[in-house]
Design a protein around this nucleic acid. Structure first.
Lengths: 117, 117
DNA sequence: TTGATATATATAAGTTTCTTATATATATTT
DNA sequence: AAATATATATAAGAAACTTATATATATCAA
């Protein structure tokens, strides 16, 4: 499992990334998808997930459809039109962040020129 | 600037990464180094930095040397022997996390085989 | 038929981790 | 004289999670 503290701040853009690649997803499905894609390394808890989804809905980023499947209620989330742009922005920020981290992790930070050790 | 919320949880391992590459660093120097390496994208504030450094010292991960330079006090931080192992572990976790994020950002999450869209 | 596991959503209390504001002090540049 | 750079530090507050708890149905194993 990924050190929990590292996840902070990345769950929101991760969820938007998932919704960008799929037409619609329901909450439980999102937790399973994150687990599967991350090879079990990222465990997205419900306590984190649902508040994020609810806020995204309030902010008009996602919209919901409720369906009863196997006698259980299932709430599908999908990006709104404006939400698609929001998702693009947040995902781009995450990509930028990942690239910055990669530089920080390079031997000597990729600064091959003269910087005193 | 990187979306602030993304930084959460990564500052600690980033500082340990810097200290792994340098013999010793002082606080102000760390903020400048992070700014330089990240091309201005990560702004490490003092309010975040010093509490982290103090905790690392209390935990025996870093040790300090105080020197007066240009009439100003300067506190150098360096990894202790056990701190070097701690740093290796935290940096490895961060590398692992970055790799996981990269998979999540891949088109279709790198899952080219059959997963219903 | 009982218990465990999987499916499914939800909220509240608590913790961690950072931001913002504030304080102090010297050196250098304009 | 004022602004900027250097240098460390703490406190209040906000953001973003974790952990605990609640509710309910379906399936599988003993």
């Amino acid at each position: 499992m990924v050190q929990n503290s590292l996840i902070k701040g990345t769950l929101n853009p991760i969820i938007l990334r998932l919704l960008s690649e799929r037409k619609r997803l329901y909450g439980y499905e999102i937790t399973q998808l994150v687990k599967e894609i991350s090879d079990g390394k990222i465990e997205l808890t419900f306590g984190a997930l649902y508040p994020i989804l609810h806020k995204l809905e309030v902010d008009g980023v996602v919209k919901t459809e409720s369906e009863v499947i196997n006698n259980r209620n299932r709430i599908y989330y999908s990006l709104t039109e404006t939400g698609k742009n929001t998702a693009k922005e947040r995902v781009a920020e995450l990509e930028d962040f990942v690239n910055t981290l990669r530089v920080l992790l390079k031997p000597n930070f990729g600064l091959e020129y003269a910087i005193a050790k």
